[in-house]
């Protein structure tokens, strides 16, 4: 599993690979020594197959509920000095 995540991180952070050709992607997969089916899913750019093989899925990630005037945060506008928290060291 760690090789797969390592490869995905590389694909995300390497300027050649992020928007590279299918050939460049296949070469990176071949070097990564990962399961053939996972490699094929990556080369096919199939998120659905990759999720299935890794037993993962998109997560519910909405971080905000619509705020109405009844919400406790509705009128919150931060003011300078209003929250005197210390800075992290």
């Amino acid at each position: 599993m760690s090789h797969i995540v390592e490869l995905l991180e590389k694909l995300g952070s390497d300027a050649t690979l992020r928007h590279g050709s299918a050939e460049e992607l296949a070469q990176a997969v071949a070097k990564a020594q990962i399961d053939a089916a996972v490699g094929a899913a990556i080369i096919a750019r199939s998120t659905t197959t990759l999720h299935t093989l890794l037993r993962q899925e998109p997560l519910f990630h909405v971080q905000m509920a619509p705020l109405g005037e009844e919400s406790e945060n509705y009128d919150f506008i931060p003011k300078e000095g209003a929250v005197p928290g210390r800075e992290l060291k």
């Binding site: 991180e9 990759l50 997560l59």
Partner: peptide
């Protein structure tokens, strides 16, 4: 609090104690 289970796997490579907020939904 991330958008994809694979991203959680990625975070787990950076830190040994990653606790998903997903079960709270």
């Amino acid at each position: 609090g991330v958008a994809d289970g694979v991203v959680e796997l990625w975070l787990q490579r950076m830190h040994p104690d990653v606790r998903s907020l997903q079960p709270l939904y």
